[in-house]
Every structure is written in structure tokens, then in C-alpha cells.
Design a protein around this nucleic acid. Structure first.
Lengths: 221, 221
DNA sequence: GAGTAAACGAACTGATTAGTACGGTTATAT
DNA sequence: ATATAACCGTACTAATCAGTTCGTTTACTC
């Protein structure tokens, strides 16, 4: 078991970059660690070790623990809906679009990462209210706006009939996410999140939505 | 500034009970303090001081901090829906009943105590999953069951038409609570919870629900 | 290839807090 | 009344962790 540079798998003697690049590396590691353990559970020491960094470097780049956490949340919140489609396509029947939106949203919400993030933010808001506002505007609010715009558009073109698109959007999204989010947060028990159950749930939510807001023919689409 | 027993307003020289009675006093104080500050923010010292107790007494009665917290949550979860009406009345039109249920639920959910409790549980579940299960079964699950039973009953009597009452219940409750709960947890900003907005929201949710599940005539009730 | 600023690592400070110990006090049961 | 067990208050231990310091090493710049 010699230790020539080639077979030394333990310490790769990695070339450590400087400046902004190092900063981003550390932020990426911090995101992973914070998501895994939340704010209070995570220590600066752990982040440093996992990033192969020293605490001094952490503090030079981010000032303090709260700032690092804020930056992570900010970045992640922005990526969440940013990564998704920027605007809902108007192609396809409302039923299809609603179904896709609902199912994608549900799958996304019950993912461990989403639940962890939400959990971490909920816990930190009393200490750092700004964090919650950033998350809400970057995440849920953005989605609601996109969806409401789609509803307004579909209403103008006669496919749907939503007098108050913002409200209709909240009702639809709520009917889909609430129960799963509560379950995921307080009683995470795998088999509640089966793909089949989610599809049944979303289908029924779409039916309910269209029964009220489907403009005439579209309701039976 | 003499200190005769009569004018000593600071320390009332209160008669401190022993045994079970003292235990309950302390639990009541702990509930208040935990609700105010969550688990990690709250120290045993603070609870002891606020209860006029010594830490030794806390530990004798509850063993450790986690046990005390668990007991508080257990008690509160049980009281939440237990205090509410045991069974939904079948008197009145579905529209009235849905409206009342929705509005009461919403008012209850956005109350500071409810949000604090939920926040505390969400934060603690990773450390103590049992806590979340207790809360869910005692709180949300119980409400969903009650409501689903009502829907089934109303369906049998022809007032409504819910093929799968459990699912319909989840959709209705979800359409009402989701958005307000998210807002309350991550971006608490007072004016979002005005009585008027909540009424408009609930009315629209009821309309949507009845459009789908209102059996014929009831839909226009 | 030399100088410099960034990074490492290890040790340290200071503050907090769960949990324990103990001597003095008081409610309560007999 | 008196015994005793519960209680109070204070002080302690041990552990954790944010944030700092410093001597050494190393990646980048010119």
C-alpha cells in the first residue's frame, strides 16, 4: 500500500483556487450542508472541513454565519423558479397545462431539498425576517404571478373564465400543495408521496378548478 | 423603603404547591415560553425563572429539555381540535357550513400561537420525528377526518356529490390554508391577514368547491 | 522566479447552555 | 408539632460553537 501521487485517493493534494472562485466553491458546499442540517445544526467548522477550507477563509468571504446562510438562500431561491420555464406556454389545452403545472410543482415540492430549504427558512424567519421575504418573492410569489398571468391570458382568449386570476391561482396551487407540504414537513413518511397518489390528487384538483373556471366547452376538455 | 410583608409587591411570597400541581404549573409556563421562542431559543433557565422554579425541579419532573417540549406539544396538539366542535353539525346548507369551517380554520391558522407552534414543530421534526406524527394525527388529520365524514354524510343525503370525500376534503382545506400558511410562516406581514381578504378568499374557495361537488341544486344554494 | 496576498490549520477566547450538586427553606401529611 | 420530601437559589461542570489570531504554506501576478 504505497503512497505514490497516483494511488493516493485520500488527499488529492488538490489545487486550491483563490478569490471569487474559492468563494463560490465554499458557497456551494455551504448550500449542501445547510440544506442537510438547517441553520442551527450546521457549524462553521463543518462547512470549513467539508470544503477543505479554514474558518478564516469563510469569515473573510462571508463575514459571519448569518450572512453565509442568507447568501445561500438568496441564490437558491433565485434559481428555483428561474430554472423553471420563464413563462407558461399557452400551447395545449388548459387541462393539460394545469395538469403539468400541478404535477411538476408537486414533484418539486416533496423533494428532500425543497423540504429542507423550506424547513430551514421557516425556522430562521423569526431571527431574520428579511430571509423569508426574499424566499417568498423569489419562489412562491413568482410562481403565483406566472400562473395568474397565464390564467388572465387564457381568460382573454376564451379558454378559461377567471374573473380574478390571482385568486384563482392561489386556490389551485393551494389545493395541490397544502396537504403534501404539511405531510412532508411534519410527518415525512415515504409512501404518502407515491407518483400514483400525486396524479390522482392533481387530476381531481384540475377537475375542481375547471368545474368553476373552465369557460363552457373547455370544462369538458 | 422597608420590606414588611405588606408592601413587598415584587415577590408575592407565593405559596408554591408540590407534586402534580407544580408540574402542571411549570408545563403551562413552558408552553407559553416555547411558543414564544421555539425550541432552541428557549433555555431551561428562562422557563425556570418565568415559573419561579429551580432548574432542579424542572429536571425532576421532566427529565430533560426534549421531554418537556414533547409533553407541551402533545398537550397542545390534543387540545387544538379537541376544543373545537367534536363533529361538524349537519344543520344548515353546505355553503354555510363550508364557509364557516373555512373562515374559522383560517382565523385559527393565522393566529400567532398557531404559527408559532407549527414553526416550532417543523424545526424540531428532524431531531424528533415522533413529535411531527403526534401533531399531525392530533391536528390536521383529525380535522380532515371530521370534514370528510361530513362530506360523506352530505353526499348520502343528496346535498353534495363527493365520490371520494377524503380527497375532496384535502382539496378544499388546501385551497383555503396553503397561501396564508406560507405567508404567515415565511413573510408575516400583517395586512395580508385582513378579515375582509380572508372572507373573499373563503367565498371563492367555496364557490369552486360547490361548482364541482355541489349536487345539482345545492350548487346554486 | 520572486513577491504578495490568499489560504491553511491549529489553537485560543468568550459566551452560552444542558444538566448536576448542594445547603437552606417550606409545604404537607401524619 | 415534627418529619420529610419537594422545592428554591446559587454555583458548578462540561460541552459546544461563533468568531479571532497567527505562523506557515501556496497559488497567482508581473
Amino acid at each position: 500500500m504505497s503512497m505514490t501521487p497516483q494511488n493516493c485517493a485520500e488527499k488529492a493534494a488538490r489545487r486550491v483556487p483563490r478569490g471569487e472562485k474559492r468563494r463560490e466553491e465554499i458557497a456551494a458546499v455551504a448550500e449542501r450542508v445547510f440544506l442537510r442540517g438547517g441553520f442551527t445544526e450546521t457549524t462553521m467548522q463543518i462547512i470549513a472541513e467539508e470544503a477543505g477550507a479554514s474558518k478564516e477563509t469563510l469569515y473573510r468571504h462571508f463575514g459571519n454565519k448569518g450572512e453565509l446562510f442568507s447568501e445561500v438562500i438568496r441564490g437558491r431561491s433565485a434559481r428555483i423558479t428561474g430554472g423553471k420555464e420563464g413563462e407558461l406556454s399557452v400551447e395545449g389545452s388548459p387541462r393539460e397545462i394545469l395538469r403539468d403545472l400541478g404535477l411538476n410543482l408537486l414533484r418539486f415540492l416533496v423533494s428532500p431539498d425543497s423540504l429542507s430549504l423550506y424547513r430551514a427558512i421557516v425556522a430562521e424567519v423569526p431571527r431574520e425576517p428579511e430571509l423569508g421575504r426574499i424566499f417568498y418573492t423569489q419562489g412562491p410569489a413568482r410562481l403565483l404571478n406566472q400562473f395568474a398571468r397565464y390564467l388572465a391570458c387564457a381568460t382573454r382568449s376564451g379558454k378559461l373564465c377567471c374573473p380574478v386570476p390571482e385568486l384563482a391561482a392561489k386556490l389551485f396551487i393551494g389545493s395541490i400543495v397544502a396537504n403534501y407540504q404539511i405531510l412532508g414537513l411534519v410527518a415525512p413518511h415515504e409512501d404518502a408521496f407515491s407518483e400514483e397518489k400525486m396524479q390522482v390528487h392533481v387530476n381531481e384538483a384540475v377537475d375542481m378548478f375547471l368545474a368553476r373556471y373552465g369557460g363552457g366547452a373547455a370544462a369538458r376538455g
